[in-house]
Amino acid sequence: MKLSSKIYTGIIFAFLFAPIIVLLIFSFNEAKSLSVFSSFSFKWYTELFNDRDTLESVKNTVVLALSATAISTTMGTAAAFGIYRVRRNWYKSIFNTVTNIPMINPDIITGISMMLVFVFVGRLFGMATSLNFWTILIAHVTFCLPYVIFQVLPKLQQMDYSLVEAAQDLGCTPVRAFFKVTLPEIMPGIITGAIMAFTLSLDDFVISYFTSGNDFQTLPIRIYGMTKKTVTPKMYALATIIFFVTMALLLLNNIIDNKESRELKRKKKEIKGG
């Protein structure tokens, strides 16, 4: 890299990380001030861990993200496999258009549109509040699905179909061939899709805001509620923890990635050698 490039990169990353560093530092501030650092303390962390509602919302967020990931990954993988086998082009193009909608539409419209349906159906059944865990789960599964499908589909298209045929010629039923041959081949796509679904679900605020009821708060909704009132460094403690969890997840992802690419290289060598 040239010196000018290095300087530019430095400036950009200073801009990207300045707010995060500010949060990290001031989460350890004894005083409530957000601009003057008085002395080091874990006060806000203790306060955070005594905050029942926030802890509850963390639990809710994880439960929701895990459920949404499990459902969207299963349904999405099946859908990708299905569309891969469909030969009618008109069906494929409708499938593509519809699947793209949640990715292109602004979150606020996706959220509002689903909320309208939930409220309408709720009214039909005479319910006072129709928004609950199930509605937010449906919403999360819906916006995660396209990401899973578009991660899995290319892997299917890259796969050598003769492997499946070989398995079937050797006596596998189509179902068995899917689990023995196809599934392992497309696994990297499924894993990437699942990770994307999980992080998207964890991070979503706008769609959750419109589709969740009062009895099920996720962490972003809780944060929204907390930042509506006065500023408290408890939030900074929370942000710091989220930051380190994110870092750990990214690191883990990188390690898996490196392992995979190393194995791929090894396999290629074996093929060349044999």
């Binding site: 949060l23 972003p220 870092m247």
Partner: peptide, 11 residues
């Protein structure tokens, strides 16, 4: 990607 993975409310 790191800032992207932090909640946008917090950012």
């Amino acid at each position: 990607m790191i800032p992207m993975w932090m909640n946008f409310l917090i950012r």
